[in-house]
Amino acid sequence: MDTLVRIAGLSVDLPAADGPVRVIEDVSFDIPAGTTVGLIGETGSGKTMTAMAIIGLLPEGAVVTGEITFGGTDLVRCGEARLRALRGDEMSMIFQDPMASLNPTQRIGRQVGEVLRRTGRPRAEVRERVIDMLDRVGIPEPARRARDYPHELSGGLRQRAMIAMAMIAGPSLVLADEPTTALDVTVQARVLALLRKLQVEEGSAMLLVSHDLRVMSHVAQDLVVLYAGRVTERGAASVVLNRPAHPYTEALVRSVPAIRTRTAIADPLPGTSAVPAQRPSGCAFHPRCPLAVSRCRTDIPSLREVAPGRWSACHEAEKVLT
């Protein structure tokens, strides 16, 4: 498949009182056109920060190095004007909490149609397109709901409005940051099915940020696993989840309750997740790793191909695979 987004050696430094903190370090992966790539890891692993770096919405003072290529555009060096032109039309984002992301003082229809109004389209055309999009995402009585304010919608409907806003211009890339976290299980399933349907219809690629392995197993074609701001493993989602090549991925899989039974978590991941500001020397996962050897404490493992299409940043990856 053609590569839509190429990320190579991406690092992000954020300002802090004691000096810059590297929250993302040497992250590399591709997003092929028309596919879903899952970005997974514990809280604080750098998932959202990676997505924000792609779309250019990092906090003020952030320093980005490395490469992010979208089509033929270098997003790291293209400038804010070019990024603004791409956002909405070619790239869009679905945020985790729609109530915090939607403007409480503006009607839903106005917010969904903002991208189209920016292009100078006639008001009647924008309204027609907004109502059609609200209908496509499953919002009942779309013409009436377009006049509602965010607080007048349920959590599920607000998330659908966010999806409509992200998809209305037919972007090539959608960044979805935990789009179902605040929803109950039945609504989650409907929203994920809707996202997949719209992605196929529009031919969009999607970067799905989540900590939920069960969501990834149903939605993502490829998977990138992050720990303390570094890539620990990447490959086809079905292969990574069924036969991990890194102890961290293996521990994540073991910590998820069985999907077809109602058992409690039998094997939780031990220890506390490392944070970038206090990242251990060597492999950041070594304090929690049952396979750690002496060099794991001193040498940062490189991300290497350990099987066809399988990449792991582990000195002992072959032992994990056996």
Rank of each mutant, 00 (worst) to 15 (best):
R214F: 00
R147C: 05
R214E: 09
M165R: 15
V64N: 09
E201L: 05
I139T: 14
I131L: 05
A85I: 02
S92P: 09
V320R: 05
C78V: 15
I139C: 02
D267Q: 10
A189L: 02
R160S: 14
V63M: 01
M133W: 14
G156Q: 12
I7W: 06
G9D: 15
S92M: 05
T249A: 12
R190Q: 14
T272G: 03
I108M: 06
M49A: 06
L10Q: 09
D135W: 12
S294Q: 02
G109A: 12
G9K: 09
A251W: 09
R121C: 03
V64Q: 14
E201Y: 10
R297M: 10
H246I: 09
Y227I: 11
G34L: 05
I300C: 00
R22P: 05
Q221W: 02
Y248K: 04
V240I: 12
V239E: 15
A205V: 15
R196T: 15
V64S: 07
M162G: 03
T249W: 08
P171D: 11
P290A: 10
R295S: 05
D18H: 04
A53G: 09
P244D: 08
L226D: 12
C314I: 04
Q111H: 11
A264V: 13
R110T: 15
A33L: 04
P140K: 07
R214W: 00
L57D: 04
G120S: 01
V225M: 12
D26A: 11
V293S: 00
N242F: 01
A16Y: 07
G19D: 03
V253P: 02
Q278L: 13
T261P: 01
P98A: 09
V191G: 04
E25C: 01
H218Q: 13
S238F: 12
Y227H: 14
R295E: 07
E202Q: 14
L208D: 06
D2V: 01
E128A: 15
V5D: 05
R22V: 06
A258C: 06
S281Q: 13
A220P: 03
M162H: 02
V137T: 14
G229M: 09
I168S: 11
A205R: 07
